[in-house]
Design a protein around this nucleic acid. Structure first.
Lengths: 230, 230
DNA sequence: CCGTGTGAAACACTTCACAGCT
DNA sequence: AGCTGTGAAGTGTTTCACACGG
């Protein structure tokens, strides 16, 4: 776990290194809800209303926002546009991050075509696949290139974010190439534990894990569902 | 760097029973790693080795396992097959949970074809889409049926787990129908906050959130080239 | 000796309650 | 009056360190 990323001296500098991970994980949610409000023309929102829509507690919302700085007006609430901009800025969504997707199977295709990417400032700049049949194909406006080009594509695009959508067996190898090419943020959809050098950030998304967690609760709920063979 | 964020994201989730949520969230990971060891014929494994492969601390692993009961042998380690079976049982993976996917776009297709589903005991029993052009199509061996059939399909299959892979605008509506049909566990891929009655369990997966979290760290790492005003 | 199992300490996060600004 | 901002209390999770059994 790296915590001391921002180890500036004990100056009176605005301490931005102290935002808890749990808060960061909620910022995209707030951003999404605020974007919806802004679209509907809502000008201000209270912590109660915003928290309600986001499905969190009002106190938690206020605490989260206060950790970023104080963007509300007492007695009134938060200015939607301003708060949206602040969170977007905090999340780095002002920058159009280039993204490379490795693995153009069903999942890779879904990711490439996912509108939520572009709408939040991510720009698909590369698609890579090992299957020669897929190389050359154009998906979401981007031509699929062979694995041999991976390093070059990453370097060319200076893509800081790589998405691994390959089978588990290829994941570590792909990861190594991404890292070697300078990629320091990796989103991994393969059910594999990636090993990366310090300084590289990875996040794992595992559908089967999420389903298993649901199954756990489901099972606990009804000890003997019908047709069970223990 | 690693991401010790345990995704306490949007959606409803409350701790139940004696096992902490954080532990439950790691069980699928352990299960996956153990399955790999079992396949390679490994008979026993120590907490150090297992934790290393899974990317968690040894103390945490032992604590997690001890919360389920004590399945290890002091001085030796854990019996891989036995532990695998215990965790599988704990997660409810002995039961083949029927699953219904609503929304057969790119993502829905990816989910339907995802091998990790079947290999972990989930069985796709229904596909639903609102697009008449897609209805009747066969994906992953299952015929796509219209939205009007949703309730019936859920009830017929007695499917306790529903996956929402629709656009955000349709998510709540689909969710309501799923719940009305008796679905009590829902995995939501739409970027929307679902409101469900008590007793229904939802988990949200949001790709854009994960990317945003990576972007957050990426931004913090390097002095942003442009667009930053302090 | 080993490595597991576990109280207890340390840490992180959430919730509460109210002070303070508008 | 209303609502944010925040110390402090409460809760949950991780880490430590060592006792215990094979």
């Amino acid at each position: 776990m790296d915590q001391r990323v921002d180890d500036r001296g004990p100056g009176a500098r605005r301490a931005r290194g102290g935002v808890p991970d749990a808060t960061i994980a909620r910022l995209p949610l707030y951003h999404r809800v605020l974007a919806g409000l802004a679209e509907r023309g809502v000008a201000t929102v209270s912590s109660d209303a915003l928290a309600g829509t986001a499905g969190v507690g009002p106190a938690q919302l206020r605490k989260d926002l206060s950790l970023l700085g104080s963007y509300g007006t007492r007695g009134v609430g938060y200015d939607v546009d301003h708060l949206l901009a602040q969170i977007g800025h905090e999340l780095g969504l002002t920058h159009r991050w280039p993204v490379i997707v490795v693995g153009v199977g069903n999942l890779g295709r879904a990711l490439a075509n996912y509108g939520g990417l572009a709408s939040r400032g991510f720009r698909l700049v590369g698609l890579i696949d090992s299957d020669p049949q897929r190389v050359g194909e154009v998906v979401a406006g981007v031509r699929v290139r062979p694995v041999a080009d991976l390093g070059r594509v990453v370097a060319e695009a200076q893509a800081p974010i790589g998405i691994i959508a390959t089978p588990a067996t290829a994941a570590q190898q792909v990861c190594d190439v991404l890292v070697a090419a300078g990629c320091r943020s990796i989103l991994n959809f393969a059910p594999a534990v990636l090993s990366v050098p310090a300084g590289v950030d990875t996040r794992d998304v595992d559908l089967a894990s999420d389903l298993s967690i649901l199954a756990f609760h489901e099972q606990r709920r009804s000890p003997t569902p019908e047709g069970v063979h223990a």
